[in-house]
């Protein structure tokens, strides 16, 4: 089963610490200096409606619409996650349209090229941008680590099974209450 990040809306206080952690985790450094002059594109977005505050992000679906839709096979399954190979991404936005959760975004970054040891600008490069579960970060998902209220978790097979068991128990109890009444 693919892993993914879940947020407990009852615990989220909408502080956006997770958003900063996410952007920082993808600069390759932990020093906030790396954020200077960068556009701010977190891979999870904290949404606030009248009654809900919670980040939304990629579900790393088992049968992922984005994987199925991508015409250049840039999106694939790896280590129980869904990953984008940026070198293949065309920026065509088919995946953005396909994702039912609005988790995918296409952004453009200034591209650079090294030539004889000199770094030169090379137009812009489009990237399909979404949660990669911090796959290149040794310490694991950054957002989960920083959330001050412990509202974020990595959902994997074991955790999902636990949650299911809890819910089943609850419905059983509710059903017995109905009988008793």
């Amino acid at each position: 089963m693919n892993r993914f990040i879940v947020a407990e809306a009852s615990k989220c206080i909408g502080c956006r610490t997770c958003e900063v952690a996410c952007v920082l985790a993808h600069t390759g450094k932990e020093d906030v200096e790396a954020l200077a002059g960068r556009e701010f594109h977190p891979r999870l977005k904290v949404l606030k409606t009248l009654t809900v505050s919670a980040p939304v992000t990629c579900h790393h679906c088992e049968d992922a619409p984005c994987v199925n839709a991508c015409p250049s096979h840039a999106i694939s399954y790896r280590d129980a996650t869904v990953q984008v190979d940026q070198s293949k991404c065309l920026g065509c936005k088919t995946c953005v349209v396909a994702c039912p959760f609005g988790a995918m975004e296409v952004i453009s970054r200034p591209a650079i090229r090294s030539f004889a040891g000199i770094v030169v600008a090379d137009g812009v490069k489009a990237e399909a941008h979404k949660c990669d579960l911090c796959i290149d970060r040794a310490a694991g998902p950054a957002c989960v680590a920083v959330c001050p209220t412990d509202a974020l978790h990595v959902m994997d097979e074991t955790r999902l099974a636990e949650t299911r068991a809890r819910r089943q128990l609850r419905s059983a109890l509710e059903a017995s209450n109905v009988d008793a009444a």
């Binding site: 502080c15 956006r16 610490t17 900063v20 920082l24 906030v32 920083v146 001050p148 412990d150």
Partner: peptide, 9 residues
């Protein structure tokens, strides 16, 4: 062991 964004960043 917890911090908010001001503490972290």
């Amino acid at each position: 062991g917890e911090l908010c964004l001001k503490g972290w960043y």
